[in-house]
């Protein structure tokens, strides 16, 4: 597996993130006894430039105003939707060029799910490549540029989100049309 021409298969996890790959896991892995602000600061662990940390944090707060409201609240006491926002926000802190997001809709009610997807869409519009793994086919296909359908470990279909949304196989198997 290579990223920007470098083999990253054997690289320890913390070095992979230093290459500019951000990762938001499905279990989020937040720091429950730290405030939102501190969680974001830890997210920027690899960034030495203080001005850059500040600007990235402003960006996160702009995208998720809710996090700014609760800046000093402990991550462990937040709702599921807010935690998801914080996890994405923390992933954004080092300004990665590629962000892997694992099942952002997992365990979320419909409205927070839409808000999360909306934020991801905005993030991608600002130039971060986002690789999303999702089971929520309907919503996902509406926001993505390009989609791959994996069936039993192999790519079964690929195309733009719009194409796949109207694909008969996808409609039958995943959308229940």
């Amino acid at each position: 597996m290579t990223f920007k021409g470098q083999d990253i298969t054997k690289l320890p996890p913390h070095l992979i993130s230093q290459l500019g790959i951000g990762y938001v896991s499905e279990s989020l892995n937040l720091f429950p006894a730290m405030s939102i602000y501190e969680n974001l600061l830890v997210g920027a662990h690899t960034v030495k430039d203080k001005a850059k940390v500040k600007s990235q944090m402003d960006l996160v707060f702009e995208l998720f105003p809710r996090l700014l409201e609760r800046r000093d609240q402990l991550a462990g006491t937040m709702s599921g939707g807010e935690r998801k926002m914080l996890a994405i926000g923390r992933g954004m802190m080092p300004a990665p060029t590629l962000m892997l997001v694992d099942e952002p809709s997992l365990g979320l009610a419909p409205i927070p799910t839409l808000a999360t997807f909306d934020a991801l869409k905005q993030l991608s519009a600002r130039g971060t490549t986002i690789l999303l793994v999702e089971q929520n086919v309907n919503t996902t296909l509406r926001i993505v540029d390009r989609a791959y359908v994996l069936e039993q470990g192999a790519v079964a279909l690929e195309g733009t989100g719009e194409q796949l949304l109207h694909d008969s196989h996808v409609q039958e198997a995943y959308l229940g049309v």
């Binding site: 996890p13 913390h14 993130s17 896991s25 892995n29 830890v42 992933g91």
Partner: peptide
């Protein structure tokens, strides 16, 4: 895991 994701060794 979270710490590693944030680039901490």
């Amino acid at each position: 895991t979270g710490a590693q994701m944030a680039g901490i060794s």
